[in-house]
Nucleic acid binder design. Structure first.
Lengths: 245, 245
DNA sequence: CTAAAATGTCTATTGATCTAGACAACTATA
DNA sequence: TATAGTTGTCTAGATCAATAGACATTTTAG
């Protein structure tokens, strides 16, 4: 007999959303790989102890995300399941790490500006507060699916053409190279998980209630001088972070 | 004028829960440090564009968590706000990293068993599938607040007294030492974020809909032989992970 | 002491979520 | 070609979430 999976009532999270989250997790865990299909609605309803209509709401949400596709008479087919692994190491490069997992990587620079450094970012970059920074706002996707969005800060004095070079080359590594920095390393990374905000839902094409992994990273040149402060938000249900030591 | 913060309707997540999540985040970001209090209910209601009763539901949930305390006539006081930083490096030790941030660290071994290795864990530990493992189930807390729960696996042949030594010493590092392993290092860590399951809600004393950071880690001895596979789930709104490279 | 500002409590109403049941439409297979 | 198994659609009712307003209670400031 199937194990009765628990869902909590009266918690402010609708049952259909809890069930959608559980099914999404089961798909990415490969629980349904044997058939390539989600179990029948009636089976899921019994498993979760809810009405079939509630399960249908959950599956409709997953179909909206493009994760599954219902076919009348046959069942509900799984369209996608992989979680992309993003490696974090001393030599973290966005495109390199994802290279073999997705066919096509897209980066989009949707805004940039010159801004004064906040005290927090100034401290992280070893600059005086208020120092001029180039801010880049980007969204990166793999095979057309948004994976992460970043706000990156670079010292404007040292890398004055950052925005133009990034727009031209589509890569931080190449934009650095074009401005005379041939190599850099990751100094530190801090990670928190939280619910996505409205802007992130839009940029990453997430459904409300989704989770983002937010990483604050500092990159330095080989002399240890900070060259970049980045705040990257990953779509948590599409990504896994791998830390290599 | 206060910025109007967006909440999404008809998403399967109740407005009061979305607002509770936003306020919790604002508290841990230190947004209200100036006063030590949450803004008045009427101000929050206007800020989020909802009825005061909806804000009250959100604050009641936060009060249940012990995060805030409402005092009639005065306002709603913030009781706790810190996020504990958990460092992950080649020499990751649970208690060491938290030492300065919390006064008192508690570890509780609530179950242990000898189990055969699944194919996944066997591969991670470099053992044949089905090899005997000691499984430890623990909950760790800082200053009385649960921070993480772990399921750890150790090769039973090499560390036969793992459960007893851990129960006696309250530390993996010390239990290793008592069995002849004086040093070990972190080989790899993988991190995903997801919604907490029912068991995790209970163990970590979370409210439904909460997020957990799940880390899968392999530790090895200095010769590179795996000695531990651990699946640790952190209460995401109490923790920050810091990766040191 | 008074007034303003804040939280606490109550009632009523509307809309969203969940349950329940019935039946239609479609697919695969014996 | 039946038949079982599956998804699609509809109706009706029960429960939960959110709004709206009024007023009580408590604390703080003047």
């Amino acid at each position: 007999m199937a194990v009765r999976k628990t869902v909590e009532r009266q918690t402010g999270v609708a049952l259909w959303r809890q069930i959608a989250d559980r099914i999404r997790l089961a798909i990415s865990n490969g629980d349904y790989d044997a058939t390539g299909m989600v179990p029948p609605e009636t089976a899921l309803a019994q498993e979760f102890g809810v009405n079939r209509h509630t399960v249908r709401s959950a599956l409709a949400a997953l179909a909206d995300e493009g994760l599954v596709r219902a076919v009348q008479g046959r069942g509900t087919l799984i369209e996608r399941k992989e979680r992309v692994t993003y490696p974090i190491s001393r030599r973290t490069r966005f495109s390199q790490g994802l290279g073999r997992q997705v066919k096509e990587i897209g980066t989009r620079l949707f805004a940039h500006a010159q801004v004064p450094a906040s005290s927090e970012i100034a401290a992280a970059l070893g600059l005086p507060p208020g120092a001029a920074l180039i801010e880049l706002n980007t969204v990166s996707s793999g095979d057309g699916r948004p994976l992460s969005t970043s706000i990156s800060y670079f010292p404007a004095e040292r890398f004055p053409r950052m925005a133009e070079e990034y727009a031209r080359l589509g890569s931080v590594t190449k934009a650095f190279a074009a401005q005379g920095l041939s190599d850099y390393v990751r100094a530190s990374t801090e990670i928190v998980a939280r619910h996505a905000e409205a802007e992130e839902l839009a940029l990453l094409q997430l459904s409300p209630g989704a989770i983002v992994l937010e990483a604050h990273a500092v990159n330095t040149d080989l002399d240890g001088r900070p060259v970049e402060y980045a705040r990257t938000r990953f779509a948590a249900d599409r990504m896994k972070l791998r830390i290599e030591t």
